[in-house]
Design a protein around this nucleic acid. Structure first.
Length: 231
DNA sequence: CCATTAAAGGATT
DNA sequence: AATCCTTTAATGG
């Protein structure tokens, strides 16, 4: 296994404020793993033996209902931790994590979590922040699902994806991985047909450009108006 | 306003 | 060729 350079992770939020020696210590205990698109990184209810840092790619966190319906909880972008069951006081993973694109990750054994947190208080606080941000995000989505119309929820989902994973192109902000209308419907609690209709009507208005599994936001402002408009 | 169903055309493998 | 993704239209809650 090749040696990993500290600069690989030094600038990522979880390791902010960590000195070089500590970074090297973390990396010495890490194993790098590759996950091809659509492979599972971990599964719900599985024993949480490892936690991960996503170095490249995108991960989809998914819950599956008893009757087989999928709900997308969130997407995780490069630089974020995932599978941090230990930080949540859990022994098992709370959901499935699937590679939404080809992914490169670092993984650590969960058994060293406590030692890391006690020797690197900064890592602990960074993790609290991450957990807090995700909590706020899910709270927002609960409010959305309870009060907003489908059109607004879809607009929000698209904007959030663009903010999280967007890449600038000549046309606008491209959501930088393959995402189907089915995926968006699973994020927003609607059907792929409704998502399809909404996206094509936005395309007609010139707000977005979308092809098969690709979405580019051209006029983010209009979408934001829609997303926040009161019915 | 939105889900469901059905049908059909395009894209991907 | 088989499968998946998207669009469109009709119907009904």
């Amino acid at each position: 296994m090749s040696r990993l350079d500290p600069s690989l992770i030094a600038d990522l939020p979880p390791f902010a404020g960590m000195d070089r020696q500590s970074l090297e210590g973390m990396l010495a205990k890490a194993v790098s793993v590759r996950h091809p698109k659509d492979s599972h990184i971990f599964r719900e209810a599985e024993k949480a033996n490892s936690f991960f840092l996503l170095l490249d790619g995108f991960v989809r966190v998914v819950k599956v209902t008893p009757d087989g319906e999928q709900v997308i909880i969130r997407y995780i972008a490069a630089g974020e931790l995932l599978g941090i069951a230990k930080a949540l006081g859990r022994e098992t993973y709370p959901a499935n994590a699937v590679a939404a694109a080809d992914c490169v990750l670092l993984s650590w054994r969960s058994s060293i979590w406590d030692a890391i947190v006690s020797t690197h208080p900064g890592f602990a606080t960074n993790t609290y922040s991450l957990v807090g941000e995700r909590l706020v995000g899910t709270q927002d989505r609960v409010v959305e699902l309870a009060t907003e119309r489908v059109e607004q929820r879809v607009a929000n989902a698209v904007l959030n994806l663009a903010r999280q994973t967007g890449r600038k192109t000549e046309d606008g902000i491209l959501i930088d991985f393959l995402i189907s209308r089915q995926d968006i419907s699973e994020m927003t609690g609607t059907t792929l047909h409704t998502v399809s209709r909404l996206l094509s009507s936005w395309e007609t208005k010139g707000w977005i450009k979308s092809g098969r599994q690709r979405i580019t936001i051209i006029e983010g402002h209009e979408l934001m108006m829609l997303a926040t408009a009161r019915s």
